[in-house]
Write a protein that binds this DNA or RNA. Structure first.
Lengths: 227, 227
DNA sequence: TTGGACGAAACTGTATACCAAACTGAAACG
DNA sequence: CGTTTCAGTTTGGTATACAGTTTCGTCCAA
């Protein structure tokens, strides 16, 4: 399951080297290897990935735009730590985008615009992954479910906004193992039902509470990792 | 009135050259000089701005992340044209962010968090600018009003999302002269009153209808410029 | 011993030159 | 008239160099 690069196909193969560095670096940061606070040194990275400094800088610039690193003049990029406020900000931002996108997606699906097939496949896939005990795959699938809903809203801007947030969510879930597996699947199923039957208001409200239900457990589980 | 660079001070002086190229290029695009469809040639720009290709590429990358240009592999960046769908997408995205941020800002202000002074100054400034017949300044002020509300939500992610949208709004207003001056000022005043008295629900609803009221006039005025 | 001044090393920000791959457009050809 | 080829242009990427900052360790002095 490829998390990034959905919906914005043109970006996928663009600028191969910088793209590759970005992808590997993001994966590494999400995995926690360059720990928060670590300075990302251009020369070091360019040697590690066997490219010149240019693609490295492009990748870092993109990571900064998406909020994963912070750069200061002449001091380069450091991996951003995460505070309680950051988590709240993340969840608030999701509450802003996802219920809104869900309503639009439901209204579109209700009038026959858009195809919920992929959404159903993802939902089924996450069920199978968790049943098989493959937590990482289940997490990816769950996040892909959210991404697919926003994609079904047909608004590329919202898709664009969601992507880095899902990266942070992946980081959170991998760190905490706080997947709320059964609850999530149940809520996703209800959300799916409301979506495909075109019940925009209901679907939106369910998306809202689904996100909000995750906040406190995550804040508790994440507490030891927060700055 | 500086439109960009509010709220994210650290980005202001960072990477001076690339920042300058970005700023001048964005200003030029918003002004319509490199018309939509124009290819942005790195060498040409680096000569025009008397810098090397590196800062130019950084600026272009940023413009792409914010949606002002589109790049394809080995074909470089072209200024994005605007379609009717783009306008709808822009307004939908604003409807997503601004009412949400407005509610939070109102609730914060209602509990004494945050300072509405700057908001009041901006509102007064726009009134004066329009009274003095300075339309560009009035437009900038009006957009700054929206930016300030989102800033008062305290959510940097939302601020980050809003910035490029205001750039596009500025482009639209300068092109169409569709400022709805009196209506805008009146609606802004009502919005301000609801905000400072902590009426989150009301303020949010007013933000929503304020944005929605602009959509149709703009679509009509903008029709000749759309692809 | 501790505090601060000093200097070298490291790193970023930028410029320049260069190469390969890909695209473009026009001429040549069937 | 349509297709193909080919040279020029442009981007994507690399290597290298250098100035300005920051960082860090050392050394001197109180």
């Amino acid at each position: 399951m490829e998390l990034s690069g959905e919906g914005v196909a043109s970006e996928a193969e663009r600028e191969a080297l910088a793209e590759g560095v970005y992808r590997r670096l993001l994966r590494a940061i999400v995995a926690g290897d360059p720990a928060p606070g670590t300075r990302l040194k251009e020369r070091e990275l360019s040697e590690r990935y066997a490219v010149s400094r240019v693609p490295v800088r492009q990748a870092i610039q993109r990571l900064e735009a998406e909020g994963f690193v912070m750069t200061e003049p002449h001091r380069g990029a450091v991996v951003r730590g995460t505070t309680t406020d950051d988590i709240h900000e993340l969840f608030d931002a999701r509450l802003c985008v996802e219920p809104f996108a869900t309503r639009i997606a439901a209204e579109r699906l209700g009038t026959g615009v858009g195809d919920p097939t992929r959404l159903a496949e993802i939902l089924e896939g996450s069920r199978e992954a968790f049943a098989a005990g493959d937590e990482p795959e289940g997490i990816s699938m769950n996040l892909a479910f959210h991404a697919e809903i926003v994609r079904l809203s047909g608004n590329r801007t919202l898709v664009h906004w969601l992507r880095p947030m899902l990266g942070r969510m992946e980081w959170i879930f991998r760190l905490t193992h706080e997947a709320r597996e059964e609850d999530q699947i149940l809520e996703h199923q209800q959300l799916y039902d409301a979506l495909v039957t075109g019940k925009g208001e209901l679907a939106s409200a369910q998306a809202y509470s689904h996100i909000e239900l995750g906040r406190d457990p995550i804040l508790r589980s994440l507490a030891p990792y927060l700055d």
